[in-house]
Simulated scan of single mutants.
Amino acid sequence: MKQEQQGEKPYVVVIGGANIDIGGQAFEPLVLKDSNPGTISMKLGGVGRNIAHNMSLLGLHVCFITAFGEDVYAAKIASSCNELGIDSSPSMHVQHGFTSTYLFIEGKDGDMEAAIADMALYEQITPEFLQTREYLLQEAQVIVVDTNIPENSIAWIAKHCRTPIFVDPVSTTKAMKLQAVLGLIHTLKPNLLEAEILSGVKITDRVTLYQAVDVLLATGLQRVFISMGKQGVMAADHRGCKMLPCIKTTPVGMTGCGDAFMAALVWAYLNELELEESAKAGLAAASLCIEYPETVNPNLNQKHLKERANFTEYSVSTI
């Protein structure tokens, strides 16, 4: 974060991925090993970047730490962050590096047929690099981490930062990076598969779901919000747990809901909302996201979030 901003406004830090997503969709059934007529799009993505974008829309002051390559994609992402009011200046720029890129091909029906994820650049976000940003991390209100960064870097953040840490496991494979530090995390937002991996409990019904929650909280984790797709979310802390259904809406886009949910959890925490109200905020943000064809709904804001969550008597504090 720019030095002149430090001390002026409370801020949150996001550490994680910022990608360029390049996708192609065929007009007709895909023919392998041949050229297929279709459309090609390029969008900004990455779990960390998406969360930062959503938090900025909710009025939070966001500092973003990622790894940029030495290419036009890095300039595009940094420019977008600047336009959104996200400070990406503490990010690292890797000489001769290539900015993280996700390349995918969809068939006529929109189902992904093949993809390549080039995310090796995030290995550069080492504990040694993070030490150079320690003051920034220690003074933040919240640190949000996605597991695209190395396991030893996640461990360094968990063990050295007194700031509350919120984590998105990203995937079942990357979730394993959290196993040793779960007890040092404030809030975890896994899906069912990630919750199974981290708890060691096969979730098949309500009973085993509660068992998984108990195992996760027993590590010392303070809050867990398990996304259950169309079934809603299981929210739990050391005082109890609550299953909440999804908010009914008309789906348009299916990606980015988890990123919006996490952003709303941070917003709710900073506004001192209890467990159930925090989950409602997350579900409201996710429902707004799903109504928009892109990964982030630009119409997300505090007013719309409160209305969707039905916070009729809730007054937002100044963040």
Score class of each variant (00 low, 15 high):
2 K>H: 13
8 E>H: 12
8 E>Q: 15
9 K>N: 15
11 Y>N: 08
17 G>P: 02
22 I>H: 10
26 A>K: 01
41 S>N: 12
45 G>K: 02
50 N>G: 00
50 N>T: 03
61 H>T: 14
61 H>N: 15
65 I>E: 11
67 A>W: 06
69 G>Q: 07
73 Y>K: 10
79 S>V: 04
80 S>F: 07
81 C>Y: 10
82 N>Y: 09
92 M>D: 11
92 M>Q: 10
101 T>H: 08
105 I>R: 07
107 G>H: 05
110 G>H: 05
110 G>M: 05
116 I>R: 08
123 E>R: 07
126 T>M: 09
130 L>D: 08
137 L>S: 06
139 E>W: 00
140 A>G: 10
140 A>N: 10
144 V>I: 13
144 V>L: 14
144 V>R: 02
149 I>P: 05
152 N>Q: 14
154 I>M: 06
155 A>S: 15
155 A>D: 14
160 H>L: 03
162 R>H: 15
163 T>P: 10
164 P>H: 08
172 T>D: 14
177 K>T: 04
183 G>W: 00
183 G>T: 07
186 H>D: 13
189 K>I: 04
191 N>R: 02
194 E>G: 06
196 E>A: 01
199 S>K: 01
202 K>P: 08
203 I>K: 05
205 D>I: 01
207 V>Y: 12
210 Y>I: 13
212 A>D: 11
214 D>H: 10
221 L>N: 09
223 R>F: 01
227 S>L: 00
229 G>C: 01
234 M>H: 01
238 H>G: 08
242 K>N: 13
243 M>I: 10
245 P>I: 00
250 T>V: 12
250 T>Q: 15
251 P>R: 05
254 M>D: 14
254 M>T: 14
255 T>N: 13
255 T>K: 07
256 G>I: 02
257 C>D: 06
259 D>C: 04
262 M>Q: 12
263 A>V: 00
267 W>P: 04
278 S>E: 04
279 A>Y: 03
280 K>H: 11
282 G>F: 00
285 A>G: 10
287 S>K: 12
287 S>Q: 12
289 C>P: 03
289 C>F: 01
312 T>G: 11
317 S>V: 13
318 T>W: 14
